[in-house]
C-alpha cells in the first residue's frame, strides 16, 4: 500500500504527473489530502488511481506575520497527531511525499511504524532544498530524496536525480 500526499496548486500538478505513470494494478493507493480551516478542497481533486482519502492539516505558506511561526508550530503538532493516527490505522508500506511540510509529519509517523519514506522535491527547487526537504534530508526521515534538477546534487549528494515532471 502506498500513501501519497495530495495538496492543491503546483503540488497537485506534480504529483498528478507522477501518479499518472505509476502502475495502478500493482499498488493500492491511499491519499493524505491537505485541509485548513475546514476547507477540504483537495479531497475532491481527481487522481488516476482510486483510493481512500484522509485529511491532514496543511502547513503554510502564509503571509508573513509575527505569529506565523506559532501558527505553523500548532499546525505541525496537529498534523503529527493526524499522521500517527493515519499511519497506525492504515499501515502503508511506502509513503510518497511531494515537497509539502505535512510530508515531514507523515514521514515521522512512517519511520515509527516501519514504512519506507520517499520524498520528491518540488520542481521549483533548483539549487537548494526547501525547508521540508532540508529537514527530511538531514534528519534522514526520508529513505530516499528525489530532486528534479541535477544541480541539487552539488549541495546534497544523497539526492537522487532521475528526471523531472516537465
Amino acid at each position: 500500500m502506498v500513501l501519497v500526499t495530495l495538496f492543491g496548486g503546483g503540488w497537485y500538478r506534480e504529483i498528478l504527473k507522477i501518479s499518472e505513470r505509476l502502475p495502478g494494478d500493482r499498488f493500492r493507493f491511499i491519499y493524505a489530502y491537505g485541509y485548513l480551516n475546514d476547507v477540504h478542497g483537495a479531497a475532491t481533486l481527481p487522481m488516476p488511481h482510486p483510493g481512500e482519502r484522509l485529511p491532514i492539516r496543511f502547513l503554510g505558506p502564509t503571509r508573513k506575520r509575527w505569529y506565523g511561526r506559532f501558527v505553523n508550530g500548532w499546525n505541525f503538532a496537529v498534523a503529527c497527531v493526524e499522521a500517527f493516527r493515519m499511519v497506525r490505522s492504515r499501515r502503508p508500506d511506502v509513503i510518497l511525499g511531494l515537497s509539502t511540510a505535512s510530508s515531514a509529519a507523515l514521514f515521522l509517523a512512517g519511520r515509527f511504524y516501519g514504512a519506507r519514506c520517499i520524498y520528491v522535491e518540488s520542481l521549483t527547487r533548483v539549487e537548494n532544498l526547501s525547508l521540508t526537504g532540508r529537514i527530511v534530508y538531514h534528519t534522514r526521515l526520508a529513505d530516499l530524496v528525489y530532486g528534479q534538477w541535477p544541480q541539487l546534487q552539488k549541495r546534497c549528494p544523497r539526492v537522487r536525480y532521475s528526471g523531472a515532471v516537465i
Binding site: 507522477i18 505513470r21 505509476l22 528525489y146 532521475s162 528526471g163 523531472a164
Partner: peptide, 8 residues
C-alpha cells in the same frame, strides 16, 4: 518524466 516515474 517517464524516467523519473520508472525509477519511483
Amino acid at each position: 518524466v517517464g524516467q523519473l516515474c520508472d525509477d519511483i
